[in-house]
Design a protein around this nucleic acid. Structure first.
Length: 228
DNA sequence: TCCTCAATAT
DNA sequence: TATATTGAGG
């Protein structure tokens, strides 16, 4: 029995006030490897505080996120690089660097993923029957071994695959002014969506929004379908 | 403030 | 069903 409120968003802080919280949790090293080269600049389309009437980007209720295998893979890669102890929702979200992805999206997914890992630990050693269609998504990406062995990993957890020639110059295109609609809601902020060693998704995936109405429900598909 | 988890809602 | 939301507890 939730009440429907129509103007709850009018009291939310402006985007600029929220930004400072979501930085510096990722080491420069990791940021480079994941090609997040915006250490000191906001990458979000900032909105002039005046016209708050069409600021849909972050204040509006988003459609449900669809975790495609591609998106989940990026999630797993982020967790793998961060190490179990550093893999918390906010940090994962930042490492994934997907526009439109919220901390709650990640938190919810992380919770389920942990349950999945727990089930797999239980089965570790004997039978192999862990996919009940619910786990299909999770089974679509390989689980890094140390996910299942909490103590089988040195203190410095995050191994960082060195990627040759990644000392690229950062892209200087802050030319996006106030856009009424999120630029590329649901796509990796970097053009080439490729992680150094762990993942080799074919070419760059041009993530895009897909508003699907199924059964009257609108969902948000972050990445085009495509199997591993 | 953020994280984690179980329960619950949609 | 898959994901979101809530609320307690740390």
């Amino acid at each position: 029995m939730r009440e429907e409120e129509s103007n709850w968003f009018e009291e939310l802080p402006s985007p600029e006030e929220l930004m400072p919280l979501s930085q510096t949790l990722i080491s420069p090293h990791l940021a480079v490897a994941f090609d997040i080269t915006n250490s000191s600049h906001h990458q979000f389309p900032l909105q002039p505080p005046s016209a708050a009437e069409d600021e849909p980007a972050r204040t509006l209720k988003r459609p449900r996120l669809v975790w495609t295998p591609q998106l989940h893979k990026r999630f797993v890669d982020a967790v793998a690089h961060l190490g179990i102890k550093n893999a918390v929702p906010k940090t994962i979200m930042q490492l994934m660097s997907v526009d439109g992805l919220t901390r709650e999206n990640v938190a919810s997914h992380l919770q389920k993923y942990r349950l999945y890992l727990k089930r797999m630990q239980g089965l570790a050693g004997g039978a192999a029957a862990a996919d009940s269609a619910t786990d299909h998504l999770f089974a679509s990406s390989p689980v890094p071994p140390h996910f299942l062995h909490p103590a089988a990993r040195p203190a410095s957890d995050h191994y960082l695959p060195f990627v040759p020639g990644l000392q690229q110059h950062r892209n200087h295109h802050h030319h996006q002014q106030h856009m009424a609609v999120p630029a590329h809601f649901g796509s990796p902020r970097n053009a080439h969506f490729e992680l150094p060693v762990l993942s080799r998704m074919g070419a760059s995936v041009p993530g895009y929004v897909e508003d699907v109405e199924s059964g009257g429900r609108k969902v948000l598909t972050l990445f085009p379908a495509g199997d591993d």
